[in-house]
Design a protein around this nucleic acid. Sequence first.
DNA 1: CGTTGAGTTGACTCCTATCAAGAAATGTGG
DNA 2: CCACATTTCTTGATAGGAGTCAACTCAACG
Lengths: 252, 252
Amino acid sequence: MASNRVITLDKLQITCQSCGLSNICLPLGLESEDIERLDAIVQRNRPLRRGNHLFQTGDTFKSVYVVKTGTVKTYTQCPDGTEQVIGFHLPGEVIGLDGIELGKYICSAKALETSAICEIPFDQLETLTATIPNLQHQMFRLLSREISNDTSLMALLSKSTAEERLAAFLLSLSIRLHSRGFSATEFNLSMSRQEIGSYLGLALETVSRLFTHFQEEGILKVNRKYVEILDLERLYSLLSQQTVCLEKLRAP
Amino acid sequence: MASNRVITLDKLQITCQSCGLSNICLPLGLESEDIERLDAIVQRNRPLRRGNHLFQTGDTFKSVYVVKTGTVKTYTQCPDGTEQVIGFHLPGEVIGLDGIELGKYICSAKALETSAICEIPFDQLETLTATIPNLQHQMFRLLSREISNDTSLMALLSKSTAEERLAAFLLSLSIRLHSRGFSATEFNLSMSRQEIGSYLGLALETVSRLFTHFQEEGILKVNRKYVEILDLERLYSLLSQQTVCLEKLRAP
DNA sequence: CGTTGAGTTGACTCCTATCAAGAAATGTGG
DNA sequence: CCACATTTCTTGATAGGAGTCAACTCAACG
């Protein structure tokens, strides 16, 4: 069942640039003709501008999406009107998997900055997975990873202090950006303090205070949205106490 | 692709009593011969006694499990030794899906009381899903549901007060037990205050205080592990404010 | 019948939310 | 390009919810 022609990372990126899903398929490898078949169903829509929605809560589930560039946040609206941020999705990450169960999206997805998104019609993907065992396995892995990530985040939210949460958040961003070829130590936050707070279960003022606190400690250099991590070790050490190992915070 | 012979609930339960997975497959229906094939790979091991492990963190992932009777908790060990409860799994619910990604379980699963568990070897299941499109779809749905549930729980943990958390927890139990034919208003808690607290991100003392508080309010009648919900409406109204709709808390 | 672990209750402290005001950046229209 | 409006961010003061520590009760079990 294992592929006899395993594609290397470089080859894969060239062959299937359009869809981050290929990265997920990598570990077991897919035959190049299979990659072409996957590539064939991937739609490249025009870039999504800041503030525009990819889908909204309740929309009929039709596709999963892969972020190519930019950042997308997913969120739900609480009964009282406030929004609850579910996640931030960076390049290479997949959105919309939670819509499979009920056939409609249970959250909304909005671009935080101009973002290029690939769309993969799910019925076509399912047809493909049924005929490519490896792809099916990678899809299961992808879904399983989502579950693992959520589990880690739940642990973080239920156990940790504000300081630990923000440290974990920054390190998660660092790791994920680095894995996509960006700098691990300096980046622009595309989300507001409010959105970070909502995601981490903190008030926006607390987030703001922690940024200045980390800066005073010499751990960060913060200028509005621009963050530079000066002392990665210290940041890591902040969550060594109770927090589940960060390996699990590594995102899709 | 849709089945021409849709199995009814009764028929299904008789045909495939051994594995709760069939309940998940219901919505789209499976042909009875397919159900037999699914049934054939399900292993019925001897019951797990209280305190015994189904698997532990780091064990090689081989199977997913379905609780038939009893309760199983999943948890991880924090670096400092304390345990973080991930979930409580009631009859009909599936365990171990988070192990797919890395090929090893990322949490431990332990019986809270004597429990009957079905084991489904995952490689065999994958072979089957590749040849039964409906089953593949149901597996995707099952994984997607896990993600949705986790999302709801994250929202609960990051936004809600202790009161809302415990109310949501009790209602979740109520709904899940009821859907399996048990009473929605009275049941035995198979987990300790400590474990509830860990799951909800609260101190055990807080959980205890809330139980007495709910009792004083006439919402519950509590006797140690035995809980009777006297006023379901009031319990619901406690989480109507910010909490994401409970529909999502309904578990696997 | 003593021992052990779970659960309850109280007192106190601390973390973080909330309220409020000001500063900085961003956007808009003339 | 500049003044004004708006949003975002920062910082301070205050209060409340939940954690922690500690003592006590209760049930289970040998």
